[in-house]
Design a protein around this nucleic acid. Sequence first.
DNA 1: GATAAAAGTTTACGCGCGTAAAGTTTTTGT
DNA 2: ACAAAAACTTTACGCGCGTAAACTTTTATC
Lengths: 348, 348
Amino acid sequence: MDARAMGGNKIRNMEEFAALSGISRPTVSKYFNDPGSVRASTRARIEAALEEHDYRPNIYAVNQNRRLTKNIGIVVPYLADPFFAEIARKIELRCIEAGLSPILFSAHGEKDLEVDILDSLRSMKPAGVLLAPLGRISDRGVIEKFCRDVPTILFDSNLDGIGEAFVGSDNFSFVSQSVEYLTRTGNPPILFEMVRPANPNANKRRKAYVSMMERLGFDPQIFQAEGDGWGFEEIGYKEGLRFLDQKPGRTDTVLCSNDRLAIGFLSACFERGIPVGRGETCTLRVAAHDDHPFSRFTCPSLTTVAHDYDQVSNKVIEMLFQLIESGGHFENRSEHLYPAKLVLRSSA
Amino acid sequence: MDARAMGGNKIRNMEEFAALSGISRPTVSKYFNDPGSVRASTRARIEAALEEHDYRPNIYAVNQNRRLTKNIGIVVPYLADPFFAEIARKIELRCIEAGLSPILFSAHGEKDLEVDILDSLRSMKPAGVLLAPLGRISDRGVIEKFCRDVPTILFDSNLDGIGEAFVGSDNFSFVSQSVEYLTRTGNPPILFEMVRPANPNANKRRKAYVSMMERLGFDPQIFQAEGDGWGFEEIGYKEGLRFLDQKPGRTDTVLCSNDRLAIGFLSACFERGIPVGRGETCTLRVAAHDDHPFSRFTCPSLTTVAHDYDQVSNKVIEMLFQLIESGGHFENRSEHLYPAKLVLRSSA
DNA sequence: GATAAAAGTTTACGCGCGTAAAGTTTTTGT
DNA sequence: ACAAAAACTTTACGCGCGTAAACTTTTATC
């Protein structure tokens, strides 16, 4: 009696559990695959037994016999970037709600690791993969091949024609709003960006900047920060110092390509004693894009343009479910871009 | 010929691959479990075949038949905190080097999720688990039971007597250095911390603060910030404003319990126009602990005490390997604390 | 209460691989 | 060159579960 109530007697397999619950193994198996597929009364009996004996099907045996598992691969380029950590968190929680098993991977900024991840993901027979690729340094061929074998939805940064769909933010929306705002309330900005952006979004933002400036009748000016890798703050800081010391082109309004660069840039401004903000006493305005989780704690707090995190992660999940229901393939590859929202803070 | 060179003909199982390589299946199986366990000549033949046919053993079938897998569970309380992202990154890479398969989980600050993670981890038959528990809100009973079933090493925050070992930083080392430094170069600090710290390290830091202050002959003063959850920057900011407006106790030297609080606190200082730093013109010095990845970009840059990330992650890995070799259990539970390093920047 | 439909039971096979046992071949040491 | 050791082959079983087929019981319908 006690031993049963304590769940002390370990159950070896579904056979044993089925015997204890008084239901046949095939029916128990059916229950675990979809609790709604069995009669309410049998379901109750199984669940009663489940409470006493805490048994769980062996996931390896289960997955071996399914063509596809309930695993969802989530791959981000760099998890130490809170932006990705945050969006991964939202997606992960949504998957769990839906009864799927999210498995999180970070390429840690390394091409080879991204390849390795896709390799092991392939042998995991996932029901779907949500992939935010490294971007420029990604091995395009490998990703393309992967996407042919495994149902994959790209997010955050797009690779043309690869994957069953793409969900992300509209870079033009970011830049048009920031440029419009800065121009309307002061002077047109110079764009502060990296020479060799890791992420394709950066290139789209540059194009958007140029086209917006021309549309507004201003001369586009770009400062290109040297540096590689994913230490954006460091690059923003070092090259920010160089920018401030050189003073190339416009120097009263700076638009950073992303918030992490701006965090470093603002740090450089502080060090040089340059008052940043939109007040009378300020000589420099700084804005950026992404609404990084830390942007509201910079000094001054950063005026930026925010991703619609919720919309994007909701759509990613929605597309994932559609993809699973469609058997892993869409007739037409679709791209879903969401507009961004201007967030006014103190820096511009 | 071409089809073979292209690896186009999909190999279904090890049987087929063994036939293609000209080696018997049991020997091929042996190879995959330990390439060094077969003769060099057979190994060469297998690897030659492997290059042409890109076959990988079915992980589910493999893991079903092993008592333990090569999976390593890594569990952190909150992955959106770059501190954990960073240490997880280091550990993950070390596992991969060693031929293990790290699987990363974040409890996202939620007790229930931590329980769920341990639950699914249990059925994954991992060779070992590296667990940084949520701390105060963890379900101690569940973790204790988990650790009895699965070989687990705790890191970052300790739960007395639970797990096969603990590896972390020495909180007394943090606080003694910061208090000593601040006192020597100016006035003794007031401690700025949360009322109900999520993490047990915070409690140890408070005790260390009190004991250090008493040892130095000063009166310990503590400001307790209200607020719950993992949004430390927000709490540091809001309660920082309250602190600055109320001016309770010492107001020229503040020691934040951790960097994330300090990031918010510095933001509050900036907003109130309070010059922070050790210069003549400054009226407030601020220091903290952890050396958060963003601490060097605060304004002013944050004087802090750094974890020895490398030592800790190396030791975690070392203990993990020992644990695996010992068959999942140590005779005696050991605790390994590493001293911290003072990092002088501009804020104090 | 008769009858069809739905759900459950029994039986059986297969998934891909680990691994043991017994026999055969190759390597090693002298 | 020869015996012993090491490595390999062949054969066979089991892991825990998905699932199909044939049959039996329960539920829904009028």
